[in-house]
């Protein structure tokens, strides 16, 4: 057994952190969701079984939040994948010394601090004279309040598009040149080449990006929190994950309903575990594992 001491040493910091901040929280989320933990019961939470889940189902706003979530995930996803595809194609259709700077430019929304990024959106959407949109449309309004969904989807979409863009670009670059030459020899137009040669090769990457982003959109709420905080009005853009966060962690309404929030999060956690295990299966990752050649 002494021979496994070294790998154990190498793995222990990572394992400890993963245990502490992945495994424990997964279990804790599930456990907390069965309690009535809240501001008032913080010291003495009691076991309430499935009560939180029942509350969830009977919540009059459940429908609204589900609809919001579907809208947010569906539309943002469509924008992300569509824009990602468009960007990958466009940056591949122009010479590389043009394509690369544009790709880099589209990375900016992703690497800018979210607070700064969202502030820019708020500024652009503000009333005149500040707001560029008001200026251009000639109607001075706070467009964040007028069209909150457009804002939420665009703000998230501009961040998310680069993910698809990069993956699709790699896929396009991996297409053998001979296919393009063959298409050219056959007299295909650019449009035909894209439809017949490029798009078919992107089927798998598109599926991958869609699957991956569905899961991450379902659970992410950082940009909505900053942009509208679920508003305007009552739950205007409140989505499932944000609602869970609000219930459990923001003292917006005074009493923090930790258990109820945990129940909402637990739904996401369970979906997350199942879906990522499913990815693992279709990924065929065993192909990526090779036997080490050193036995000391």
């Amino acid at each position: 057994m002494r021979r496994y001491l070294t790998p154990l040493l190498f793995l222990s910091p990572a394992s400890a952190l993963i245990l502490l901040f992945f495994f424990t929280p997964v279990v804790a989320t599930l456990l907390l969701s069965f309690t009535d933990l809240s501001t008032t019961t913080f010291r003495h939470p009691s076991w309430v079984g499935l009560a939180n889940y029942q509350d969830l189902l009977t919540d009059p706003f459940l429908k609204k939040i589900l609809a919001n979530t579907a809208k947010y995930v569906g539309l943002t996803l469509a924008f992300n994948v569509g824009m990602g595809l468009l960007l990958a194609l466009l940056t591949s259709l122009v010479p590389e010394n043009w394509g690369d700077p544009f790709r880099a430019l589209w990375l900016l929304p992703r690497i800018l601090p979210p607070v700064v990024y969202v502030f820019i959106w708020q500024g652009l959407l503000a009333e005149a004279p500040m707001g560029l949109v008001s200026d251009l449309l000639g109607v001075s309004k706070n467009w964040l309040v007028e069209a909150p969904w457009t804002a939420v989807i665009l703000a998230n979409g501009f961040v998310g598009a680069s993910f698809g863009m990069l993956i699709f670009t790699s896929a396009i670059r991996a297409i053998p040149r001979e296919l393009f030459y063959a298409a050219a020899v056959d007299g295909a137009t650019t449009g035909q080449t894209i439809r017949r040669v490029v798009i078919p090769m992107l089927a798998w990457p598109i599926l991958f990006v869609t699957a991956y982003q569905t899961l991450s959109l379902l659970t992410s709420f950082e940009y909505i929190l900053l942009l509208t905080d679920g508003g305007p009005g009552f739950y205007g853009t409140e989505v499932w994950s944000l609602h869970a966060y609000h219930l459990a962690l923001s003292n917006y309404f005074g009493n923090v309903e930790f258990g109820l929030g945990a129940a909402m999060a637990a739904v996401l956690v369970v979906i997350g575990v199942i879906v990522s295990l499913f990815y693992l299966k279709i990924f065929n990752f065993r192909a990526l594992v090779t036997e080490p050649k050193i036995e000391v």
Binding site: L268, L280, F283, I294
Partner: peptide, 30 residues
Amino acid sequence: MKFPLRTPYLGMILTLHAFPAVSLLIAIYY
């Protein structure tokens, strides 16, 4: 390195890589 459960460990890492960690915030707070 060779060690027992090496492949499952790697599988776990890959799964966690796809897993949306923000859904754990509430529990992590606790």
